[in-house]
Design a protein around this nucleic acid. Structure first.
Lengths: 189, 189
DNA sequence: GTCTATAGATCGATAGAC
DNA sequence: GTCTATCGATCTATAGAC
């Protein structure tokens, strides 16, 4: 685990943005020293296991953010409809309305996946289960809730891919709108 | 453009699989020489511009495959319903029922995107337009056709991300099934 | 703690023999 | 055409001064 770097609390988000931009394999320590302003000595002081450990810390922080801002509201909101609304707002903010990619999705696609398999897996599993939980509490039967939940999480990931490939964030915002509608209309089935 | 390599027609698919496994930045010429059995001299003879040109040729081949096996049936099938059926079958085959990722999607996520922006963009645009065309000919109004088309292409990409991250191809096959149903039911609105 | 210097491996790409 | 040898750059990681 990385040492305490509370004095450099801004380093972790920066690392995240670098990994988003270059991918794991494409990120070099030279780029990291440049963007963080920290020399290699400092970086290895905080992250003795180097680049891999930096990525792990970043992924942990992503997980914490989603746990607090997305999964928890979905699981524990008294009003599940409100929890879902919170999710959509948080997701739209987090991904900058389609201009920012999902690090977990990006890491999932090539063989860097193998190094972080557990974290990547649990991110999507947690999201899926939390959303399904909210949908069930909202009155949907288990099968339909799981179905819609997988559909939503899947579509969000795909929309981030398309938005980036087309350089058009609106693909993402359109998808979010479509998904909200689908959830609303499914409640009346 | 790469020189004629008809005598090594099996090299391009191999290159594709390597890029799928390691990503563009993560693919080394050492790995390529190892997996293709060709020395660097041969590789640079066929691909004077090196790794980037190899990726371009691979992306071109992907585009050709989808044009022939997916986009063309969607656009020109006398029976649009049949064209859509062909699409789902071809997609399921191509992505090995969720065990194979989409190279275009993978290249879209990090900054390798910038080098291939045009090819990545046109892949998704062509798919979207071809599917929307089939849906319109099947009787849907333009707005709904575009909506569903974007939904389908997006969901397929997302499903490939999730299937890989969860190491569970069934996420992909479930998604295809869901999308087929959605298209069927939308025809009756 | 943070830096510079540098090791040691690997990178993409080229040269030139055959 | 295909290979080996090798260049110069860049990579991750470490060592050690301060």
């Amino acid at each position: 685990m990385a040492r305490d770097i509370t004095e450099h609390h801004d380093v972790i988000p920066t690392l995240g943005e670098i990994f988003r931009e270059f991918g794991f394999a494409g990120t070099s320590l030279a780029e990291i020293t440049h963007r963080t302003g920290l020399g290699k000595g400092s970086l290895y002081h905080y992250f003795p296991n180097g680049k891999k450990e930096m990525a792990e810390v970043v992924l942990d922080n992503v997980a914490i953010w989603f746990e607090e801002n997305v999964f928890l509201p979905l699981r524990e909101s008294n009003n599940p409809k409100h929890g879902i609304k919170v999710m959509f707002k948080a997701v739209d903010d987090y991904f900058h309305s389609g201009k920012r990619i999902c690090l977990v999705g990006a890491f999932s696609l090539d063989n860097t996946r193998d190094q972080f398999a557990c974290k990547l897996n649990s991110y999507f599993t947690s999201w899926n289960q939390a959303l399904a939980s909210a949908l069930k509490r909202d009155g949907l039967n288990a099968n339909l809730a799981n179905d819609i939940s997988e559909d939503v999480v899947t579509s969000i990931q795909g929309a981030l891919v398309l938005a980036r490939s087309q350089d058009n964030p609106k693909v993402f915002t359109r998808t979010l709108k479509r998904l909200k509608k689908r959830i609303e209309s499914s409640a009346h089935d």
